[in-house]
Amino acid sequence: MFRLLRPFEYLEPSCVAEAVEMLVRYGEKARIFAGGTDLVISMKKRQIVPDYLIAIGHLSELDFIEAEPNGTLRLGPLATHARLAASPLVWQRFPMLATACNEVGTPQVRNMGTIGGNVCKAGPSQDTPPVLVSLEAKLHLVGPSGKRTVPMDQFCTGPFCTVLAQDELVVEIEIPPLPPRSAGCYKWITKITATDETLAGAGVVVVLKEDGSFEDVRIGLGSVAPMAIRARRAESLLRGTWPEAAQIAEAAQIASEEAEPRSRAAYRRRMVQVLVNEGVTEMQRQIAASMQEAGR
């Protein structure tokens, strides 16, 4: 049930270092406040009752979208979903991430909500984690004892739980470039209405060898397990093969078994199957078509 917000103190650090100091000082009583689209709801539901909000929305050092010449994409945690979805750097390099960002909530939420928040919330039904997991993104964290880097698939430890320490802050999301002959997509289905929460989401990356076989395939699943997961058994069934429709369907079936949905479980599993099948098939076709075109 939604209730009134409890009183809290609103702190505005001048830099990341000061934000970390505040986290050290106030410990469990403090929360980082960026877009607030999710935190405020949790506060109204009294799931989180912080005494201090450490606002970071004004820290420009955390607000960037940059690409390196080798294709690596570096995202500041304050990049909003709306800006990521509209950024040519994102669109051209990782269209699947733009798709996922465009699927988050409604325009209002996309304008306010940040990718850092989406990742740190670690809710089972966020849209960007399955994509970031399949892209093998890395998170750069800063705490009182310095920096560290955590691969995306080791960041979450359970629903709403991460390895982020109480006094740490995500300062960058790094996405490594994809090899040649690769493509990725995000497939999803909402619970029922167009702007509804995601019922099941799949980030799919396919990399082909020159001979057309699957050099690599990565399948990130969202909303169907306690956290975003890789469907590794399904991946390994396809890796190194020249899969036809039946084999892709079998892999999709295995992916659906790897999912651990809680509510609407049978339907969610069935949707995982549909989404993975669709995603892998489409990416295989897409890369093959562009290889054919390049060879012509």
Binding site: M1, F2, K191, I192, T193, A194, T195, D196, E197
Partner: peptide, 14 residues
């Protein structure tokens, strides 16, 4: 279903 996060009314896009 006691709020709009669980009770789903179609919106303009639907």
């Amino acid at each position: 279903t006691d709020n709009y996060d669980s009770y789903k009314v179609p919106g303009a896009l639907d």
